[in-house]
Amino acid sequence: MTDKTPRRLRYAMVGGGHGAFIGAVHRHAIALDGFAELTAGALSSTAEKALASGRALGLADEHNHVSWQALLEAELKRSPAERVEAVVIVTPTDSHFPIAQAFAEAGFNVVCDKPLVHTSEQARALVATVAAKGGVFGVTYNYTGYPMVRQAREMVRSGALGAIRKVVVEYNQGWLATALEAAGNKQASWRTDPARSGPAGALGDIGSHAENLVSTVTGLEIEELVADLGALVPGRALDDDASMLLRFKGGARGVLVASQINAGLENDLRLRVSGELGTLEWRQEEPNRLAHYRREGAAEILTRGSPWLGEAARRAVRLPAGHPEGFIEAFANIYRGVFADIRARGAGQVADPLEADYPRVEDGARGVHFIESAVASSAARRWTVLDQDSSSPVRNLR
């Protein structure tokens, strides 16, 4: 009997070395399904740390590099059959654009952490490069990988709620309730530094997730917004708290909150979508449940793994009902979509949209435009119209 198990794809990682929380998360998620293996990297901006991190992960010396430039140069010298098939970027935001642009321009498939880049100009340039080269480019808005988020998307877009009237999304954390950056905390230091984080703090770090969650589930486009951004911890240069009102094309209204100074809270991302016929509610800290409240009829709690869920949600499940799945599995679902697209394109095929289900470079570009618009609105203390021609449309799988 012939083994039809596809060989594992080769990927390289930029950033994510020793002490970097998110790099390990990406590697664990990729390893979960066994679709790809880490074969090369430039795991830190510090040469000694990069090499030590690579050795600790078992990278051969010829694939373990002191910089992303050295990694790119080495991979371009290899034959196409030997090169890595994807490059994963998990560095602070200030370096996303030069790294992603260089690898995409060279014809590599890329996966980049969010927010995508610092400016809309950079985002448009990256979108154009990806379109010209025809490669795969994923952005790790990982919360869209949860099965019950995909169930919510299917229910909203199939009309189960009727026309959408109101969307409320909150992302509340408490880890920056004190000035951790002053104490030398690495994660806090770069996230509160405008040169590295970009024009926004909490809004860029977690508000970008909130915007993407709304766009993914509802398919609505933000037409205009009014934002109030502020630093509530004294001396902080970027916002640690953001609140805004949203108006969507078609008339729906929304509220978005992104705050990292809610003392005692952990990772409280929650979404409520209300339409003419009912409401859906989902919480990231209880990700296996989706509440459906009907205008007429009994409320119900949908649970992950149930046989009556939609196809997109069922495909995102690995364990039977009652066995909780969470953060790593959601991340892994994003990577499963990326790798399915890479394999399909490599075979000259178009991937099934429900298999290649992941946020694209256009989603990342829209998120950057959203951040810029919110920063401008807060500074001007007025409603700001989003020029949709400068951002990107919401993908619709239907």
Rank of each mutant, 00 (worst) to 15 (best):
T5K: 13
T5L: 03
T5Q: 06
R10M: 07
G15F: 09
A20T: 14
G23R: 14
A24F: 02
H26Y: 01
H26K: 07
I30M: 13
D33E: 06
D33W: 10
A36P: 02
L38E: 15
A42S: 15
A50W: 14
L51N: 07
E62D: 15
N64Y: 02
N64Q: 02
W68D: 09
L71A: 02
R83F: 11
V84R: 09
V88M: 07
P92Y: 07
S95V: 15
A102M: 13
A104M: 08
V111A: 10
H118G: 01
Q122Y: 03
A123S: 11
G138W: 08
P147W: 05
V149K: 02
R150N: 14
S158V: 05
G174M: 03
A182M: 08
A182L: 09
T192C: 13
A200K: 12
A200Y: 12
I206H: 12
G207W: 00
S208F: 03
S208I: 14
T216A: 10
E221V: 13
I222V: 15
E223V: 06
L225K: 01
V226F: 03
A231F: 01
A258Y: 03
L265N: 10
L265S: 13
E266N: 15
N267F: 10
L269Q: 08
S274Q: 13
N288H: 08
R289E: 15
Y293E: 13
Y293C: 01
R295A: 14
L302H: 06
L309M: 06
R315H: 04
V317D: 07
R318Y: 04
R318A: 10
H323I: 15
E325N: 01
E329Q: 15
D341I: 06
Q349G: 00
R360H: 09
S377R: 05
S378V: 00
R381C: 03
W383F: 09
V385G: 03
L386R: 09
L386M: 15
D387G: 01
S391T: 15
